[in-house]
């Protein structure tokens, strides 16, 4: 087995007096699809946001492709890496948010090309080509020049996916990306994610869509109260449900 593309080692994080993570570790290998499930407040989203340092953490390390990101130990002291370094690390991960966070003042195409132009310094023509390709791949070739306000929730989220993946990230981070969608729009987004998974993308999915997680994941992680309680294949987690609290949690869902 080769080295994991993402290694989370003994993460520690507190919110004020409340300690959320007390030594959380997780490995993700290239091409793996990892789903993180668990009740709200379990820290799933926080863990995801620690990977691209939208949240800081007080202890532990995260390694992307073997290189430590976010923090470093200089002369025995732990400190944040420079803003420039963190920004370039973030450019190698892609995140899709629950509330889409599309730029409302830009067209779908420009939402996708903004990162390519400003971060990867591509010329507008090159960026547009890539942008159009990915918008096409998510099924929005008719909507290049549409503004987010004129797109449905499902369409907006697909633009958000295109925006993230067009940057060619090493790992994609999906943060409950269908939770804010009307039920009938969820399917189109899941279809896109499934397609990306089949094409070998490395991804972490924080999700409540159990059936989808079962279908698409290589590995499922169950979190509760800031700890990883169980890790296994979809069959182990959804089928066998060996871990005691899994049964209770999963009884809320139809898997």
């Amino acid at each position: 087995m080769n080295k994991p593309i993402l290694e989370i080692r003994n993460l520690e994080k507190s919110f004020g007096p409340h300690k959320l993570f007390d030594g959380v570790s997780l490995d993700v290998f290239a091409g793996e699809v990892v789903s993180i499930i668990g009740p709200s407040g379990s820290g799933k989203t926080t863990l995801l946001r620690c990977v691209n340092l939208l949240e800081g953490y007080e202890g532990g390390s995260i390694f992307l492709d073997g290189v430590e990101i976010g923090y470093s130990t200089v002369r025995g002291k732990r400190r944040s890496q420079s803003e420039a370094d963190i920004a370039s690390q973030r450019a190698t991960t892609g995140m899709v948010f629950q509330s889409f966070n599309l730029f409302p003042h830009k067209t779908a195409l420009h939402n996708v090309t903004l990162g390519l132009q400003k971060v990867q310094k591509l010329k507008i023509e090159e960026a547009s080509e890539i942008g159009k390709k990915w918008l096409d791949r998510v099924g929005l070739s008719e909507k290049f020049d549409s503004f987010p306000a004129h797109l449905s929730g499902g369409q907006q989220q697909r633009v958000a996916i295109a925006r993230a993946i067009a940057m060619g990230p090493k790992i994609m981070l999906f943060d409950e990306v269908t939770s804010a969608l009307d039920p009938e729009l969820v399917g189109e987004v899941l279809a896109v994610i499934k397609q990306l998974a089949l094409e070998g993308a490395t991804m972490i999915l924080v999700t409540h869509e159990m059936r989808f997680a079962n279908e698409v994941s290589d590995k499922v992680v169950f979190m509760e109260n800031g700890s990883i309680e169980a890790v296994g294949t979809p069959h182990e987690i959804f089928g066998e449900r060996k871990h005691p609290r899994l049964e209770g949690f999963l009884s809320n869902f139809v898997v």
Binding site: N52, A87, M95, F97, N101, H105, L114, K118, V119
Partner: peptide, 26 residues
């Protein structure tokens, strides 16, 4: 919305870029 800054950060933009391309126009 805070998500705008998050989206910019997630794409790897540095703050001056986020300010000029995302926040200021809005």
């Amino acid at each position: 919305p805070r998500g705008q800054t998050d989206a910019g950060k997630a794409a790897g933009m540095k703050f001056p870029t986020i300010l000029s391309s995302v926040l200021l126009p809005q």
